[in-house]
Design a protein around this nucleic acid. Sequence first.
DNA 1: TCACAACATGAAGAATTCTTCACTTCATGT
DNA 2: ACATGAAGTGAAGAATTCTTCATGTTGTGA
Lengths: 115, 115
Amino acid sequence: MAVPLYQTKAEFFRTLGHPARIRILELLSERDHAVHELLEQIAIEASNLSQQLAVLRRTSLVVSRREGNAVVYSISAPEVRDLLLSARQILAGLAATRTDFEDELVVPTRPSADR
Amino acid sequence: MAVPLYQTKAEFFRTLGHPARIRILELLSERDHAVHELLEQIAIEASNLSQQLAVLRRTSLVVSRREGNAVVYSISAPEVRDLLLSARQILAGLAATRTDFEDELVVPTRPSADR
DNA sequence: TCACAACATGAAGAATTCTTCACTTCATGT
DNA sequence: ACATGAAGTGAAGAATTCTTCATGTTGTGA
């Protein structure tokens, strides 16, 4: 293998490192979506969405097929679902830690409903 | 929550999206390491390593403590280990897919040992 | 107290990645 | 054949992220 594994891994994570791409993968891990369906859910320009889909296609994380007038995307590695879940858990854990830490350090103020 | 979840997730993955940071996390998921120990394993400049450690610290993925002359780092979320494993599997799957695909399309040539 | 080793940090230029724009392509309906 | 809706693409400037350099801190041992 010419490219070291940790380099490949880094690239993989980098392709996950974009809000639109995360949303796309989350939507696709529920079910296949046509591009115009994704567009309804994600608030970005059509051509930007195309660019992000291209990134995901390049890394083989998704595949597309044409269905008449529409192009339908699907996830190629179902394990991505687990990965996203796993990430959510870690994130929840870290958030909790940070909150605890604040609880310890921050001067207590009147509890506020919206923060 | 002011910041949407998928934004936070994207940031999380982006902090994983760097070869040095991946290696650091892999080393730390084996056991705690002092900075100079990490430096032995990873071929980057000391100050670069510090910068990457700072990135990981900012996102609370690692924590550091001083032990005499040295600073020792450890992983704060053990689940990171699973995540890295999970990524490795997906990557292996994708690589296999791509290889299969090549097997189908590419004109077979004499097998070569070094590619 | 000095000197040195181990780390950290701010700043700046280099390198990447994002977003948008102007087009192009492809399939369908008329 | 033409118009239209759906999607993709190359290019370019804006925005981020990397790497390195110079300098600053903090312990330890002489």
